[in-house]
């Protein structure tokens, strides 16, 4: 999958876009409205902040006060169990809110590039609206992350397979997307012939959209149902 993000091998045509355009719109809408990946990132960030707080200036994980000792450039793993914030007006630590369980590796004091786990009917609010996610999750940062790094600003690849809920509507989700350092949202689209391409949305202006396929990068617009390549424009 990571290879697909780096080197998409599909060739997008008008016929293909006619087939996948609605899927792209739905996936983007679901991801943006439910904001589930930010819920996951928040938990990873809280864990990293905790690690940073427990790491001294020499890079040692200092758990001496807890009776475990100080670990120089520790290697190991973290199993994080988060109770989701729920749909109430105030956050509660209620198992009814669902849980998010994540596994992180530690190597040389850094968080491993891959974080994975699952959400068990994780409920939370997005702009006052009820959202939920239930399913598997994997997040890839491309490289190990130091405890002091702001992960929200790092490029990250998300893979999710489960059920997403927003505003009372649920939908199945099986997608992979990348959020680049500039905030661009890259959605990986897999085609029937097992090739793939990326449909991207610029974060500051989602109307700025485009495709990255084996032929290169070119602009598209889902509303206008057209793409502009160097060789010409096609629509569907």
């Amino acid at each position: 999958m990571l290879e697909d993000f780096d080197n998409p091998d599909g060739t997008v045509t008008a016929m293909i876009m006619a087939e996948v355009a609605s899927q792209i719109e739905e996936a983007f809408e679901d991801s943006q409205s439910s904001d589930f990946y930010n819920e996951i990132l928040d938990v990873i960030e809280a864990t990293i902040v905790w690690l940073d707080q427990e790491t001294d200036e020499d890079g040692n994980l200092d758990l001496a006060e807890e009776g475990l000792g100080t670990f120089r450039a520790p290697s190991g793993a973290l199993a994080v169990d988060h109770t989701c914030t729920g749909w109430g007006d105030t956050e509660t630590n209620d198992p009814e809110n669902g849980t998010l369980t994540l596994a992180l590796t530690l190597g040389g004091g850094n968080i491993g590039a891959l974080v994975w786990g699952f959400a068990d009917d994780c409920k939370y609010l997005v702009r006052g609206l009820r959202a939920s996610y239930d399913g598997d999750i994997a997040v890839y940062f491309g490289r190990p992350v130091a405890p002091s790094e702001p992960i929200a600003e790092l490029e990250s690849v998300f893979a999710a397979a489960g059920t997403i809920g927003f505003g009372g509507v649920t939908a199945s989700l099986n997608e992979a997307f990348r959020i680049t350092e500039s905030g661009r949202f890259d959605l990986l689209i897999r085609l029937r012939d097992r090739t793939s391409f990326i449909y991207f949305f610029e974060s500051n202006n989602p109307s700025v959209q485009g495709i990255i396929d084996v032929t290169g990068t070119f602009a598209c617009n889902l509303e206008r149902r057209e793409c502009v390549k160097s060789t010409g424009t096609f629509s569907w």
Partner: peptide
């Protein structure tokens, strides 16, 4: 030596830490 610990990251989040020493 494998050190295991249970920590509280925030009021809603706990973790089991396993460190190879």
């Amino acid at each position: 030596v494998l050190v295991r610990g249970e920590v509280a990251i925030d009021p809603n989040t706990g973790a089991t830490v396993g460190i190879n020493v």
